[in-house]
Deep mutational scan, measured.
Amino acid sequence: PREAYIVTIEKGKPGQTVTWYQLRADHPKPDSLISEHPTAQEAMDAKKRYED
């Protein structure tokens, strides 16, 4: 089974940042970016789909 994890990042100019959620996995390479999402819920949904 595949495993993934969610990383929170800040995008934008200082003082005007927006939080994004990255879905990452250690396949095919360590810390590979799988997808980016504007909400934590979307990231969790993507994580479930990826791991299923």
Rank of each mutant, 00 (worst) to 15 (best):
P1H: 14
R2N: 09
R2Q: 08
R2D: 06
R2P: 11
E3V: 15
E3Q: 15
E3C: 14
A4L: 14
A4Q: 02
A4N: 02
Y5C: 05
Y5S: 04
I6R: 00
V7Y: 05
V7A: 05
V7H: 05
V7C: 13
I9D: 02
I9P: 01
I9F: 06
I9W: 03
I9V: 14
K11W: 06
K11A: 05
K13V: 13
P14S: 08
P14E: 12
G15H: 06
G15K: 05
G15F: 06
G15M: 05
Q16G: 10
Q16D: 12
Q16M: 13
T17A: 09
V18Q: 12
V18I: 12
V18G: 06
V18T: 13
T19F: 11
T19G: 04
W20I: 08
W20T: 06
W20K: 04
Y21A: 00
Y21V: 01
Y21T: 00
Q22N: 01
Q22E: 11
Q22K: 00
Q22R: 00
L23K: 01
R24N: 02
A25K: 08
A25P: 00
A25I: 14
D26A: 14
D26Q: 08
H27R: 09
H27V: 13
H27G: 06
P28V: 07
K29P: 15
K29W: 14
P30C: 11
P30H: 09
D31N: 15
D31W: 14
S32N: 08
S32L: 08
S32C: 07
L33C: 08
L33G: 01
L33T: 05
I34E: 01
I34C: 03
S35W: 01
S35R: 00
E36C: 11
E36G: 02
H37N: 01
H37W: 14
P38L: 12
P38M: 12
P38A: 14
T39E: 04
Q41Y: 07
Q41G: 08
Q41K: 13
E42K: 05
E42T: 04
E42I: 04
E42Q: 09
A43I: 01
A43R: 00
A43S: 02
A43W: 00
A43H: 00
M44G: 05
M44I: 12
M44V: 10
D45V: 11
D45S: 09
D45H: 09
D45G: 06
D45Q: 12
A46L: 01
A46P: 00
K47I: 04
K47W: 07
K48W: 08
R49W: 11
R49E: 10
R49M: 11
Y50S: 02
Y50F: 12
Y50G: 02
E51Y: 07
D52M: 15
D52C: 11
D52Q: 15
D52N: 14
